[in-house]
Design a protein around this nucleic acid. Sequence first.
DNA 1: TGCCAGGCCCTCTTTAGGGCCTT
Length: 204
Amino acid sequence: MNLNASSLVILDFETTGLSPNMGDRAIEIGAVRLHNGKVVESFQELMNPGFRISSFIAEYTGITNEMLSTAAPCNEVMNRFVDFIADDNLIAHNASFDKRFLDAELERISRTYSSKFACSLLVSRRIYPLAPNHKLATLIDYKRIQSTGGFHRALYDSEMTAQLWLEILTDIEAKIKAENVPFALIEKLSKTAKKDINKLLEKW
DNA sequence: TGCCAGGCCCTCTTTAGGGCCTT
């Protein structure tokens, strides 16, 4: 298990809705691998969920039923993606959402992963309490990260989340004056109450 | 018929409710 932050996979799903328990499926996975603070690899594939997506999702993502009609089925794509993850730890913006879909899709193909998740949304609420809100696009603007505005596609959102994550690491490092931020600290920051954040950073 | 997510976190809390975030 990789417990430091030197190699991470930042991922984002586009899906047919909000809940795999309600029958929703993944329609696109995008991810980048960060190694020593740089993007060294990326993964992006559309996947066919086996049914038509709603007009809301098509408009929200820009992914159409026509595009999905020629895409590989979810099981093929997810098999390739879990190989891509290897044993790197995982980051997502609102990780509980992406984890639910990752777990649900992998359960369908009887694959597992050993990686741990951390959440850029939960950490950003700790590190940037003064941001207008903690939506991905808002945080990208708040941190003045260069963006073309192409949100709601999986690879683009994973790329933007990766850039945000690097900003978060930089800001945490500045607080604790450390060269490397352990993944274990990031996990704790994802789950530590606001009142305890400074104590935790000082302790580390 | 009409509704149907789930996790985290804050607060007017913990015997709960509601907002935020993801598609």
